[in-house]
Design a protein around this nucleic acid. Structure first.
Length: 388
RNA sequence: GGCGACAUAGCCAAGUGGUAAGGCAGAGGACUGCAAAUCCUUUAUCCCCGGUUCAAAUCCGGGUGUCGCCUCCA
């Protein structure tokens, strides 16, 4: 490709960060790279060797799984029953087939780094231990990952880390469900791959987020465009309510709160608590979302009446944005200003309607629709939104 | 073969002992010039069989089905 290994890595890191940002995923405090942490990695391996948990074979270093009694506990694997060599060839030089590489001696032409065991590269688990402990401490609060990583990766990570520090590596392990395509794991070998890059060209990233949140994180979620359409419908219901509320502010008044207002305030509090309770319960986002839908219904009923209070409306909006913010939804958007010619058309239609010239009014409405503008005639006047 | 997860309405999905949230779609109604949005009403032998219990979607046993993991992908 005519570029260096570093440049290639850089390209993919940038692409990843761009996609993550589009989905509203916040950057981590640190995005460390294994190649910048050789010192820490080597130190960790040395510690394991000093403790008798690792041994050297020629230029390689292996973790001795029999020296670490808890090995296999995280993944609840019966070590005797593991199908040896199911996926890869067993290295005959290892003491036990389960032992895994901490350091691999370099073969001719491979990228390599200096180490006490000669030129080589880290084994594929050790960098996670070295870097996460460097930045987050010896015990992590939460370690998350895909279920396919439980064994061997997380098992190995935990063994290395706990072996070295004598402390638990993670307080909680959170393993998410797969994002499946046609009920099967998305994987390169199956070829059923959808990239975020591709998706976000076709679908509003907010819809993707909402879709993911509609099921519990531990459940596998099946992906297809029909389900995404369903999600879109649901999300629209919520966002429509928000814009209705914002519009209603213009006609809202009243300083003193009457019974109806107070009831609405109470409802807001009630659903907020329900939301928080659901999230506290192992991030039950589907249940939390239900609270938002119920609040939405209450809010829609509230603004149906003529007498509405601005403080109440503001409170609903504030609460909704606050809770939505937890999920990365409903960020406040600047109100789009329509082009003058479109405004003019809307005015013309209003006149036509006043004169009960329905064919003309409908013609203008259809024309705007084909331009992607949806008109809605509400009791409080006409309003528009973009077709999504 | 070993280990594990899951099975709830047409679709998605929450609910881990007290009699089925919520959303999408559909049907009927209200509102509307008509729509849209919104509101109201409406849709479930909780995979099957057996057991425990006053009470089971939830607990136990046995099936069936789907999916995942099984040692240098990280």
């Amino acid at each position: 490709m005519g570029i260096t290994m570093e440049q290639l890595a850089e390209m993919f890191i940038d692409a990843y960060l761009e996609d993550a940002e589009a989905l509203g995923i916040e950057k981590a405090d640190h995005h460390p790279r294994a190649t910048h942490h050789m010192k820490e990695i080597i130190q960790l391996i040395e510690t394991l060797m000093e403790k008798g948990l690792a041994y050297q074979v020629e230029g390689d270093v292996y973790f001795d799984t029999t020296a670490f009694p808890q090995y296999g506990r995280l993944s609840q694997q019966n070590l005797e029953e593991l199908e040896s060599g199911a996926r890869i060839e067993v290295d005959e030089r290892k003491k036990n087939s389960l032992d895994f590489a901490l350091w691999k001696g370099a073969k001719e032409g491979e990228p390599s780094w200096e180490s006490p065991w000669g030129k080589g590269r880290p084994g594929w688990h050790i960098e996670c231990s070295a870097m996460s402990m460097k930045y987050l401490g010896e015990t992590l609060d939460i370690h998350a990952g895909g279920p396919d990583l439980v064994f061997p990766h997380h098992e190995n990570e935990a063994a290395q880390s706990q072996g070295a520090t004598g402390k638990p590596f993670a307080r909680y392990w959170m393993h998410v469900g797969y994002l499946n395509i046609d009920k099967q794991k998305m994987s390169k070998s199956l070829g059923n791959i959808l990239t975020v890059r591709e998706m976000r060209r076709k679908i509003d990233p907010q819809v993707i987020r909402f879709f993911m949140l509609s099921a519990h994180y531990r459940s596998p979620i099946n992906f297809n465009f029909e389900l995404l359409e369903q999600a879109k419908g649901g999300l629209e219901r919520l966002t429509t309510m928000l814009s209705s509320l914002e519009e209603s502010l213009e006609r809202a008044n009243g300083i003193s709160l009457e019974d109806r207002d107070l009831k609405m305030m109470e409802a807001v509090e009630e659903y907020k608590e329900k939301f928080i309770h659901s999230m506290d319960d192992d991030f039950n986002t589907a249940d939390a979302l239900a609270a938002l839908f119920e609040l939405t219904r209450e809010a829609n009923i509230y603004i149906k009446e003529d007498k509405i209070n601005a403080r109440v409306i503001q409170n609903i909006l504030k609460t909704f944005r606050e809770l939505g913010g937890v999920l990365g939804l409903f960020a406040e958007q600047t109100k789009e200003v329509l082009a003058p010619d479109i405004e003019e058309l809307i005015q013309k239609r209003q006149e036509a309607r006043k004169n009960k010239d329905w064919p003309k009014a409908d013609r203008i409405r259809d024309q705007l629709l084909s331009d992607g503008i949806i008109l809605e005639d509400t009791p409080q006047g006409v309003r528009w939104k973009r077709k999504s």
